[in-house]
Design a protein around this nucleic acid. Structure first.
Lengths: 173, 173
DNA sequence: GCCGAATATTTCATTCAGCGAAGGATCTGT
DNA sequence: ACAGATCCTTCGCTGAATGAAATATTCGGC
């Protein structure tokens, strides 16, 4: 299937390099997950609450405020969980609900300053550490890595969709 | 720390490259987190249960079986949560408790075949997708990128420890 | 060899996030 | 205006994680 079978050791070496990269990314994900949890807990929030703030922040700053329904698919939770989540954030003063004037069924979630501050507190120290960590890496290498990570992210979403709906080849609609 | 201040645009470009990389890694983490949750739920487990299986798998295969106490720090949960977690996995037949003969206070957690199968089901399809995704990337590039990801992981753990224990200046030697 | 401190895991009662089912409000098509 | 679909919320419940206390085992002093 490889097309060229005259270089087995080279293929094997590349496969091992890919496996190492996958393992490194997996470890990064696990450690990041723990970090998010620790940070969220230190600020009286849950893991999903903090991730929700990230999405809400991105939505607000891009001029396209997010709705509970979108959060539902972003976080992979059920609708009632999102209601409770937004209740918690609103109760803590981090966000505010607003009715969409065009579609009064929909609710837009707008960030409050404290949520922005929370996002800053989360990102800035970690970002500084990361910048220092790769200070000696060539910029082109960094760009190549970014591209690879984006592709890997795409692979994850594909695998997730395949797991989420494994037995719906063409119907379901 | 830059030493050279005569190339501001080059520094700015590199900083932007780093920021892009950080953003890509963040998105990768978020999507991976959702994927883990979806996969775990599809197999009747929770997020932490699956992550625990990963650590237990690694411990068992490295000939150094993990203990509940180690899982406590690996997953960032409390000790009682680990007891319940191992209870669930043991009840589902995925792991088995064994007392450490040298230190009979300790309990070692050993994998059962079903847990190995679960880990395989999780990794193999995703791994195949990822291998295909980076099929056109040079092996040397991949190795350099892996090193960067490992450093980033280290940065995350440092940031986590700083958040976890922000007021212990002289302790941990 | 025995007693008390320290370590590792478990049990107990409680809290809280998330799910499924049902409900209320609003938009769309006719 | 009415029926159906869509979006969000409320209600009752399951289950995972927590802090405090209990149990079992090892280590140090005498």
């Amino acid at each position: 299937m490889t097309g060229v079978s005259a270089q087995p050791s080279r293929d094997a070496a590349r496969a091992e390099a890919v496996d190492d990269l996958i393992d490194a990314l997996r470890l990064f994900t696990v450690e990041s997950d723990v970090f998010v949890d620790v940070f969220a807990r230190a600020h009286g929030l849950g893991r999903n609450d903090l991730n929700a703030i990230m999405w809400i922040s991105q939505g607000t700053q891009s001029g396209h405020p997010i709705t509970p329904g979108e959060l539902t698919s972003r976080l992979g939770l059920g609708a009632p969980a999102i209601t409770g989540l937004v209740d918690r954030l609103e109760n803590a003063g981090h966000v505010r609900r607003e009715r969409d004037p065009h579609d009064r069924r929909k609710v837009t979630i707008v960030m409050q300053p404290s949520a922005l501050q929370l996002a800053i507190d989360f990102f800035v120290p970690l970002g500084r550490l990361m910048h220092e960590t790769v200070a000696d890496i060539d910029a082109d290498d960094l760009r190549r890595l970014t591209e690879v990570v984006r592709r890997m992210t795409h692979a994850v979403t594909v695998a997730r969709d395949a797991t989420d709906a494994p037995a719906t080849p063409s119907a379901e609609g």
